[in-house]
Amino acid sequence: MSDSGSLVKISGLNFSYDERPVLRGIDMDIPRGKVIAIMGGSGCGKTTLLRLIGGQLKPTHGEVQVAGHAVDRMGHDELYALRRRMGMLFQFGALFTDMSVFDNVAYPLREHTSLSEELIRDITLMKLSAVGLRGAEALMPGALSGGMARRVALARAIALDPLLIMYDEPFTGLDPISLGVIGQLIRRLNDALGATSIMVTHDIHESLAIVDYIYFMSGGRVVAQGTPDEIRASKDPFVHQFVYAEADGPVPFHYPAPPFGKELLGKGAV
């Protein structure tokens, strides 16, 4: 709210799990009101990056600023005040399994607002309707398919009309029709709420259609970035590999390991 520029500002961000570095020197600048996509190979640290923005993990070096405040230096109350304005869609849904679909979506409303139960019901049904699951309100999460569960989780993430919405792979497990609808929903929501969205995804074609800016990550670094048009025109080998889904290229398909041949020969050969 302080400046109309960037909502999230990441500078020189390094992060390691135990001793193993996952992120090495990330710089990002995410302006208000935009939809940003973060792409990269499996295990390159995208989920980790979202967690750092949400304040669940603390950076080893560098800083994450949201709305002008460093997330890792916030106290508990300040962080919670910030998170109330954030929505997050988890990679695996993370629905509360002891509550119905309706109660899951109503949960943040009941926790953080003092709205009447009728109003909560209206808002919840509206959100469920937006993801096409109004008819499933009475089901328990165990009775949902994978794609349905993710759509419910999406409805829950946007229940409070947050300022910053983070989607961790919103498109996995969706059929092509829902995929298109959800993609449009993310875009429309962002514009209607005046929110900012960060979307981790592998679906390059859908992203190119809806986002304003794309970051490519590999090996814990940002290796390419640009608007959809720049990306389409890019000659960058990383981008090329992603857009055309090639197995060979600068993005490694393999988790770091010693050469396979050496391992196969193994200790017996030595």
Binding site: G54, Y80, R83, M86, F90, A94, L95, F96, T97, E111
Partner: peptide, 21 residues
């Protein structure tokens, strides 16, 4: 079992991210 499974399925993290302790 309940708390362990809630943790394993990220329900605790999700709650924390919703600013609910």
């Amino acid at each position: 079992a309940e708390i362990g499974l809630m943790k394993a399925t990220e329900q605790l993290t999700a709650m924390d991210m919703m600013a609910v302790n």
